[in-house]
Write a protein that binds this DNA or RNA. Sequence first.
DNA 1: TATAAATAGGATAAAACTATCCGAAATAAT
DNA 2: ATTATTTCGGATAGTTTTATCCTATTTATA
Lengths: 144, 144
Amino acid sequence: MFSKACEYGIKASIYIALNSYDGNRVSLKEIAKEIDSPEAFTAKILQALVRDRIINSVKGAYGGFEIPKEQISSIKLSQIVNSIDGDSIYHGCGLGLNVCDENHPCPVHEQFATIRNDLKKMLQSTNLEQLALDIKSGASFLKV
Amino acid sequence: MFSKACEYGIKASIYIALNSYDGNRVSLKEIAKEIDSPEAFTAKILQALVRDRIINSVKGAYGGFEIPKEQISSIKLSQIVNSIDGDSIYHGCGLGLNVCDENHPCPVHEQFATIRNDLKKMLQSTNLEQLALDIKSGASFLKV
DNA sequence: TATAAATAGGATAAAACTATCCGAAATAAT
DNA sequence: ATTATTTCGGATAGTTTTATCCTATTTATA
């Protein structure tokens, strides 16, 4: 459903959020290890999230990535997805037509509109806090 | 959401169904033109659909692709998607975990399960007949 | 100030996906 | 039979995505 980059970005954000609760800044190396992702590639993705001000980075010794505690609950999955994969998942036609709307719908326009709308709502209503707490309580996992 | 190959496959199948109603076998060239897809690439995709017996092909002069009339309404979008993109869209984890189920869920397992289930249902309940009839009546379009 | 630890970012490589080319095989019509 | 048409399938090329490498820059600590 999402690109690899986006999957890594979501997992990394959750891991950063999780640690930011305890005031722990985490390094790229630690993140990549804990979410089981390629380090250098993950670095690129985190750079994008930093540029879009979804996470903070601190350079130099004892540096790393963090999210201000008070922001964790207001960061939605949609922001992360949008930063990495763009918004084509919302607006793009299910069959790749350049023009596809109510007036000129592709054959599966209606069917996809429903699914995409649900996906959109879900991404916009799911925040990092919920996801991080589930990891903390052991209800969910970031890797196998 | 789907690969280009899958998009072409769905559109091609609809166009073939549409013509098979009238007993018209259609050539690769005509299909590619009418769904606005690259010819040679579309050929590969149609070959896969033929191998999976979703459409029929007839070689040689006056050959082409067709779907037996009586089968059109029983061919589901899910069969086409499955033939081209595989079934990862149904079973794959939203965050790419190799193991992700009720017992060991990824952070967005619940949220995605709902969306994916709806998508699955939609693909399994939408058949080529419905889509072809909408094209025929001018209610939907295969290209811009 | 020197050093070590980290992120930033450009360049490059590998893999996957998309697309093209061309000859082989099949088939209808002449 | 020969020819024209059309799908089949292997080989190859282009593009995008994924991944790696290396150097520069930043910063805390000794």
